[in-house]
Amino acid sequence: MVRSLHRAAFNAWPISARAGIGLRIPHHARVIQERHVADWLEVHPENYMSAEPAAHDLEMIRKEHALSLHGVGLSLGSADGLCAAHLERLSHLIQRYAPGLISDHLSWSSIEGVHLPDLLPLPYTEEALQVVARNVDHAQTALKRNLLVENPSSYFQLSICSLSEAEFLGELVRRTGCGILLDINNIYVSAKNHGADPLSSLRAYLDAIPATSIDEIHLAGHTVERLEDGRDLRIDDHGSRVSQYVWQLYEATIGTIGARPTLIEWDTDIPDLRVLQAEASKAQAIMDEHWHQEQLYALAS
């Protein structure tokens, strides 16, 4: 079984079911100065693969924080497979930082040697499932670690899909033993862009994906653009606070599957660290409230 084999293979600082924040390079100096700023931090490994000063900063930060590596460059959906050089660079970072979690996206960025810096959509077909499963297996074997795969935000509704995204992810877990990083903001953005009810969409994910495989949750902000025909398009830009609707979906998720490591992501118009910490505190409060409810329920029964 891939999952248990890979989990036993590392000795990293584990990430507990608490709230963390996405660390971006503008905050390095502040985090080093304050020493400890969150229960755990998550970084994009691509920012450290060819940038020794930043990588050196991260070593100091890592001494005080559990760390997750959240990739944007594996291109798990590429029809022509994974880039061996990228996998090697990621492997080197894993050895250097011993992260508690490693993740990337259900998307693609590379084809025929060209890399586009975006998380591009996949058609959810049996062919794509075979490709992604093969690539996830390849990555897990090469990295000797279990990988979490994140549901992306989507703007296209590809008519050639034969599976829903939730079904696709559930089957990917079954075939590869990978974990899932559930991005609640992405579920909301995709549902609204495709005219679906976000809560029903969330339920579909939680029904299709084994709860035990959901090892991390992401929360982020998005923007709304009014199109010429009067419709709204939601864009997953990670540039603002988590919306109230996404918080509601998060509460529903925690109420269903229990507390999970939860990350506040913020990538554009990066605010003061205190803003990120405040957002993380809100997530932590929701997990704490759920824990108290469970204790009361246990006492009452």
């Binding site: 029809a79 022509d80 084809i111 060209v114 975006d118 591009l120 058609p123 794509a128």
Partner: peptide, 17 residues
């Protein structure tokens, strides 16, 4: 039926040009 590689190649070209 559009293959995955064909879809990806076409979309990548559209995004660049």
């Amino acid at each position: 039926m559009l293959s995955l590689a064909e879809f990806q190649f076409t979309l990548a070209a559209d995004l660049l040009d």
